[in-house]
Design a binder for these strands. Structure first.
Lengths: 186, 186
DNA sequence: TAAGAGACCGACTAATCAGTCATAAGGTGT
DNA sequence: ACACCTTATGACTGATTAGTCGGTCTCTTA
């Protein structure tokens, strides 16, 4: 049997994605997870800490997945493509995580400084700086380049979610990537 | 003296932008606005209706501002630039509206169908279709083209907010527009 | 086997919330 | 002067919430 902390995170994710943070009572999370109310506050002293723990959990998982997809001999464009595709497909396959993130990143729980520290973001910024020093990317702040890519991934995932026909259309996805690539390339 | 309905919307906007929808009690809004609790529910039968009214209020205002900026003899690229710049500057100048929108559009109060019906979105889609038929834009769904522009505007506003140095840098803003333009142009 | 620690329970509480209601003042048309 | 509508008040309520607490169970280690 899976441990109760993980069970709580998973249940919270489902309920948050469906009803939002505030419409989801901690007692409801515990009940749905099949554990006591007390144990929730044993692992997460406040609701905010539960929410932050979920954020790190998701960021870690998407980071691990993305890293597992890239290969060493790749060109810069190939690497960017791989990361872009990994992000799009991971978010499509993990719809609840995606929903949670959208809400979280636009809620008072989130701050920009939290994000910048994560290794996923740091890896992306490094890549962006590489692109700039190779004179391939536009002459723009590396963090901004990353944020542009991220927002395009987000838009693409939302679109694919509402238009499932395209979800397995490789040609269409390539078109979407060209949009993102054209945006950042010189 | 300005009417109480408007006073309520303005006060709610400030409090929502600062603390979020749920951390802001209706009673607090009324108190801060200097009116009774009852009158809030007289004008907005539920909290959700207040939130939706605020959304339409903002969308209407940004629409009117944007339309006032475009001129008839403009080329397609000029029109797109004007709308892009209008959106960026309006959101920068109306920081609370921007904050509110971010939260609203990523909350369970929002649905995609609400957005599609607004004249601001419909105008943008028309322009996107114009660009496609003139073979200037990429061969991609017009709604998606609009959503791409919107998400880039959002990203740019966020960046400018945290990097105020660039806020009056015309050259930098032109760079930002070129990113958006390169993304959608063929 | 004793003792300490972490995992776990669920009833409980103090606070907070959206929404109601009885009441009344001011304006408008007849 | 009357009926009626809109605007307005603020005390009130029933439901809900995050977080607490006293106590039990189980595992580890000396």
């Amino acid at each position: 049997m899976i441990d109760k902390r993980t069970k709580l995170i998973n249940t919270a994710k489902t309920l948050f994605a469906k009803n939002g943070f505030y419409a989801t009572a901690t007692a409801k999370i515990a009940k749905e997870a099949g554990v006591s109310n007390g144990i929730l506050f044993h692992y997460f002293p406040t609701k905010a800490e539960l929410i932050h723990a979920m954020y790190y959990d998701i960021k870690d998982r998407i980071f691990n997945y993305s890293v597992s997809q890239i290969y060493k001999e790749a060109t810069l464009k190939e690497s960017i493509y791989t990361l872009w595709l990994a992000a799009v497909e991971w978010n499509l396959e993990n719809a609840e995580d995606f929903e949670f993130m959208l809400q979280f990143e636009n809620s008072p729980y989130f701050s920009n400084d939290i994000e910048k520290k994560h290794k996923y973001v740091q890896m992306s910024i490094e890549l962006a700086e590489q692109g700039r020093s190779q004179n391939v990317f536009k002459d723009i702040n590396a963090l901004l380049l990353f944020q542009i890519m991220s927002s395009l991934v987000e838009t693409n995932v939302k679109f694919l979610k509402y238009n499932p026909t395209f979800q397995n259309d490789v040609e269409f996805k390539n078109k979407l990537f060209e949009i993102a690539w054209d945006a950042i390339k010189k």
